[in-house]
């Protein structure tokens, strides 16, 4: 795996929602390289979610640019954006699985970016993809539940399905928008272990929003802290002093 090659870059990023005067994020300049495990900290409303969502174009920037492997993308070029997105796996706080479908079927939906609608609807996946789905389900310890409907799973299990759906994309970037915010600390830690393992095995760039400073300090190789939409800290975890932590969460 190559190290230090620039994968994702956001330049002068600014997002303003609707007619609001205060931007959700502003003056954001960040460069992410392969192999980094980044945790984004900040209190509710600091712009963590907005930042993550700009990276795969779920949230368009009001000003500035985002680029992936030096290719800038905008919502207008739907095809190009689609191809970039399929290289980025994303997991969400509320899992966002497809209800009524089974665990295995939900994992297959991660392949949708690589096939036509015709192939997707008929479920025409290759044998390689099918065995990969099995292998990933084994990895997230869900193989015995593969034919169960996702609605019947626990929160932690659902999030593991979310991870499996992201991993089957063979992504280069792994994004997480508060993926453990609604899980108990033990389950949250298991989820992070799982992500970390996949991260290391596949040499991913991982960027995750998290509320828990403890988790961030334990897993991240780089921490970005946001306050009122601005990056106020961007460094290795060791340099995140207690004072800085306090100032992040005060008013």
């Amino acid at each position: 795996m190559l190290c230090n090659d620039e994968l994702l870059k956001i330049t002068n990023g600014k997002v303003t929602y609707g007619r609001s005067d205060t931007p959700a994020i502003h003056d954001v300049n960040l460069t992410f390289t392969r192999g980094e495990f980044v945790c984004v900290l900040g209190k509710t409303g600091a712009g963590k979610s907005t930042l993550i969502r700009t990276l795969n174009g779920l949230q368009p920037l009001s000003e500035g640019t985002v680029s992936y492997q030096n290719q800038t993308y905008s919502l207008k070029e739907a095809e190009a954006l689609r191809k970039i997105r399929r290289n980025m796996g994303m997991i969400f706080q509320q899992h966002q699985l497809i209800p009524r479908l089974s665990v295995l079927q939900n994992v297959y939906t991660g392949l949708f970016g690589f096939h036509s609608t015709f192939q997707n609807v008929l479920g025409l996946f290759t044998d390689v993809e099918k065995s990969k789905a099995r292998q990933i389900l084994e990895q997230v310890e869900l193989l015995p539940l593969q034919h169960q409907r996702v609605d019947s799973l626990s929160g932690g299990q659902k999030q593991r399905v979310g991870i499996a759906r992201a991993l089957i994309q063979s992504p280069e970037v792994f994004l997480g928008d508060e993926p453990v915010a609604s899980l108990d600390p033990g389950t949250a830690d298991r989820i992070f272990q799982l992500i970390k393992k996949a991260h290391e095995e596949q040499g991913l760039l991982t960027i995750i929003n998290v509320h828990s400073v403890k988790l961030a300090l334990h897993y991240a190789t780089r921490i970005i802290a946001l306050k009122e939409g601005r990056v106020v800290f961007d460094d290795v975890p060791e340099n995140l002093t207690e004072e800085l932590q306090d100032s992040l969460y005060e008013r």
């Binding site: 689609r82 997105r85 994303m90 969400f92 497809i98 939906t109 991660g110 949708f112 690589f114 036509s116």
Partner: peptide, 18 residues
């Protein structure tokens, strides 16, 4: 939510709706 997830995996637009 699920529509966003389908966007995020890069699904074609009709797949996304379905």
């Amino acid at each position: 939510g699920p529509q966003e997830a389908m966007k995020a995996v890069g699904a074609p637009s009709i797949t996304r709706a379905l």
